[in-house]
Write a protein that binds this DNA or RNA. Structure first.
Lengths: 258, 258
DNA sequence: CGCGCAGTTGATCACAATCAATTAACGTGG
DNA sequence: CCACGTTAATTGATTGTGATCAACTGCGCG
């Protein structure tokens, strides 16, 4: 939580995933990295590249875009503290394009560093693994979002998710988030047309759920937005054992043994 | 590839992901497991459960269904050789319902076994990790499928994917696959209505791409189906380094340094 | 000053959902 | 062996959401 530390958001993220001792976190201080500023709509990684470094997002937003679909569909959004291409540690071939939404700052960290980090600290190894699983859970939820919600609730759900993910790293605590997104970006993420995205945002505004002026979004009715989106943040919080909420039903395997 | 071995499909799957020595594979022979037969539409795991065993699919199909959406949207399909809930090794709380599509046979394997396996064999550890990443890649592709294709191409793409995944474990080599799926299952997977799923299948039949009679699907025009679906199997084959196809462009980081 | 992009609005259209029957396949019990 | 119930597949009619096309506005910026 050291405010001045360049990688503080990564620390926030990792500690939210797994219990980490200060010894573990100290290993991050000699993380080698080159800081890179990315312009709006610039590509960070291109489909087909072979990654040798991981891309840690320090500021702004990144998006993964499908190379296939002509509309450049967005399949994932990264927020500060995320390691956008963590999976390349084990599978370096890049699948999709990694683009900046608005201006962004990233730290490029050699794969070697993370491999050694994992070898040195089991807790860190576990935290990185959980980070991968968290990405997977987010992806699955994205599938649900596209599959079972209409345009309005889809957009609402995406905004809820981004807000909570920002809050994990200390941003958007007051429900105000910087949004370099264009309405077309939002449309590409939700698989709706830009025109319809516009209407949808207006509807959210008209319902007094949020204000979106210029480059900031202010969510004025968080409860209402959550209700509209049917948003359940459980999938974002990995530490399932620790915060044991009561089970809805007894744990039984309802299967017929042959 | 030992034909009689109960876990041969798992072996097929693992070797397709990573290079494994026979020493590594021998570790699987003392895998403790209880074999369970599941009836059609029966739940294997329920939302909220805490898993202590992994669920290896031996025969049939399993599906993950979203607990939230009322239509029971299918977010993932497992084929033989898959470990349906591998992620519970690190995050035991179940998110979603795991249901059998048609009759299925699974082997329940204690988490301990896989943890010890990973500790004993680095290659196996890596293979399991790649299995998780493969699931993630499939999930991302599912997002693309829902987001950027219409009903017809969506169904076609799903069929292509299942076919290739079956072929990895030695099934559907002749493009005939057993399909205990109901049209409603297909609809739930593709986020279309059951009625429209029916029309879509008829269209595929009419185009002479496949026959779907009773409980088997025969793909009579694989090339045509692939073309229609715009199916690119790259995301299913993890061993990207080995089968190096020529890069479409030189590997360069096209970013603006500050 | 005017170019260009993001946002906004309206009109029209298509794809797929929904509703409503009907047919076919299959078991079960009378 | 046939009547019945159940479940899946099929077809048609209708509705509606969101895409597409086409202006037009407002603003930032060279």
């Amino acid at each position: 939580m050291q405010a001045g530390f360049a990688f503080s958001k990564l620390v926030d993220r990792l500690t939210s995933l797994a219990g980490l001792a200060t010894d573990d976190l100290d290993l991050l201080t000699d993380m080698p990295s080159s800081i890179v500023h990315i312009g709006p709509r610039q590509a960070v990684l291109r489909h087909g590249d072979e990654a040798t470094r991981c891309c840690l997002l320090l500021q702004g937003y990144l998006s993964w875009q499908s190379p296939e679909s002509p509309d450049g569909q967005i399949t994932a959004i990264c927020v500060p503290g995320d390691i956008a291409d963590l999976h390349t540690l084990y599978r370096p071939r890049i699948d999709g394009n990694l683009m900046a939404l608005g201006p962004a700052i990233v730290a490029l960290v050699p794969h070697r560093f993370f491999h050694e980090l994992a070898a040195r600290s089991p807790a860190m190894s576990r935290a990185l693994l959980l980070m991968l699983l968290a990405d997977h859970a987010i992806q699955r939820n994205w599938t649900i979002n596209l599959g079972s919600r209409d345009a309005l609730t889809r957009v609402a759900h995406l905004l809820c998710e981004i807000t909570v993910r920002l809050q994990v790293v200390g941003l958007a605590r007051d429900f105000r988030l910087s949004s370099p997104f264009t309405q077309s970006d939002l449309a590409a993420a939700c698989s709706i047309s830009p025109v319809h995205a516009n209407r949808t945002i207006q509807e959210l505004r008209r319902s007094n759920l949020l204000q979106w002026r210029g480059k900031t979004i202010e969510i004025t009715d968080w409860r209402g937005l959550v209700r509209l989106a049917d948003f359940n943040p459980a999938y974002l919080s990995i530490r399932s054992q620790e915060d044991a909420r009561p089970l809805p039903r007894p744990v039984t395997a309802a299967v017929a043994v042959a």
